[in-house]
Lab assay of single mutants.
Amino acid sequence: MQNSHSGVNQLGGVFVNGRPLPDSTRQKIVELAHSGARPCDISRILQVSNGCVSKILGRYYETGSIRPRAIGGSKPRVATPEVVSKIAQYKRECPSIFAWEIRDRLLSEGVCTNDNIPSVSSINRVLRNLASEKQQMGADGMYDKLRMLNGQTGSWGTRPGWYPGTSVPGQPTQDGCQQQEGGGENTNSISSNGEDSDEAQMRLQLKRKLQRNRTSFTQEQIEALEKEFERTHYPDVFARERLAAKIDLPEARIQVWFSNRRAKWRREEKLRNQRRQASNTPSHIPISSSFSTSVYQPIPQPTTPVSSFTSGSMLGRTDTALTNTYSALPPMPSFTMANNLPMQPPVPSQTSSYSCMLPTSPSVNGRSYDTYTPPHMQTHMNSQPMGTSGTTSTGLISPGVSVPVQVPGSEPDMSQYWPRLQ
């Protein structure tokens, strides 16, 4: 039975679970980093996980050691009161100082060594604690504590007292930064006198190289990059290397530039699409467009005044059976039934097929058609009795279509119309 579990990581490298990497692998990681390889490249070359490479390099940059820390136990506290007071002093002298600059000053002034120097995250935590204590304490208590930490007896009751030896409130920041720059020169002199001055200088240079600022491109470089971006948004590694040799930039910087440029292009394309949609959409909808001609068919113009009344309900007709019959029939052209047409008796099958359309009241044959006459024609229609054979009435077949029909004066039988409509 094995005491430890061995495995293979996602890159194909072998590791022992819970145990640190061998010293030979750690040394190779540092050597590759000094030669300029990126952590992701080191991870692929040595088949070590990216997190492990970053952790080893980060500890090497901070402490200069590649040895693993002790497994188990607690780390001794490195942010001692003396170190905290120095950090507060540096922050007062130059409020814009960075944590890694404070760390360098602690090393250069001999406050800490490589073994007990606090990390950048520890210094940031100390600065946050100082800021929170400043908010919790009152103004007087804060000034007393700062005077105690600074070891001075001057008056701290006013704002300019934060910067000793100065009279203009805006000047101390520059003086403090100048003092810090002077301390940086002392850093070089002190570290050069040490035993491991060369190694420390190499480590600091490598650290500065990794902690780079934003790349500033010249106009020629920007023009070359934009020209390549117009050709393709995704250049391959050969195109990037050719462009890197042409404009004297690292291939990694060119790759990052193209990634950022593609993101910018997507944002601009989104804005262009929004403007295009806004320009195509009308600002207001016309009133006429809300009524579609496919839904509402136009009603033909009436030929006679009587045809303006298109349904039985508008003429005072309360018989719903006839109203439904007229509205359900398709529109037909106007025609006239003459008196000489043969009077065919209704076929029983045809009569039964339209039995649902006729009223059940037996008085329908005896009703006159003056009910369908509009009010303004009552006088004219009353002067001509319906009993004469020459009287013409208008029957409504569908809305908007008038059918003048000659009705025999002897017997106005409704059943004569249905064979004609089939």
Rank of each mutant, 00 (worst) to 15 (best):
Q2R: 14
N3H: 12
N3I: 10
N3D: 09
S4E: 12
S6C: 14
G7M: 12
V8M: 10
V8G: 04
Q10W: 04
G13A: 03
V14T: 13
F15L: 03
F15Q: 04
N17H: 15
L21E: 01
P22N: 01
D23N: 10
D23T: 11
S24Y: 11
R26W: 00
K28G: 05
I29V: 04
V30L: 06
V30H: 01
E31T: 07
E31Q: 13
A33V: 06
A37F: 15
R38L: 04
P39H: 09
P39Y: 07
C40S: 11
C40H: 01
D41F: 04
R44H: 07
R44D: 04
R44V: 06
L46N: 00
Q47L: 14
Q47T: 04
V48F: 04
V48S: 00
V48M: 06
S49R: 01
S49F: 01
S49Q: 03
N50Q: 11
C52W: 00
V53K: 01
V53L: 05
V53D: 00
S54N: 05
K55R: 00
K55S: 02
K55T: 04
G58D: 10
Y60H: 03
Y60S: 03
Y61I: 09
Y61W: 07
T63V: 04
T63C: 06
T63P: 00
T63G: 01
T63L: 04
G64S: 03
I66Y: 14
R67K: 15
P68V: 00
R69N: 10
R69Y: 07
I71H: 13
G73M: 02
G73A: 03
G73Q: 01
K75I: 05
K75M: 05
P76D: 02
R77H: 02
R77V: 02
V78N: 00
V78A: 02
V78W: 02
A79H: 01
T80E: 02
P81V: 09
E82I: 14
S85I: 08
S85R: 12
K86F: 11
Q89D: 08
Q89I: 14
Q89H: 10
Y90H: 14
K91S: 04
R92L: 08
R92Q: 14
R92T: 15
E93Q: 11
E93N: 12
S96R: 14
F98Q: 05
A99L: 01
A99T: 08
R103Q: 08
D104G: 10
L106S: 02
L106T: 00
L107C: 08
S108Y: 13
E109R: 13
V111Q: 09
V111T: 09
V111I: 10
C112K: 05
N114L: 10
N114H: 12
D115Q: 15
N116K: 15
I117Y: 14
I117V: 15
V120K: 15
V126K: 06
R128L: 04
R128I: 03
R128E: 08
N129S: 07
L130V: 13
L130I: 10
S132P: 09
S132E: 07
K134H: 04
Q135S: 12
Q135G: 14
M137F: 12
M137Q: 13
G138T: 14
A139L: 11
D140H: 09
M142A: 12
K145F: 09
K145Q: 13
L146H: 14
R147C: 14
R147F: 12
R147D: 10
M148C: 10
N150I: 08
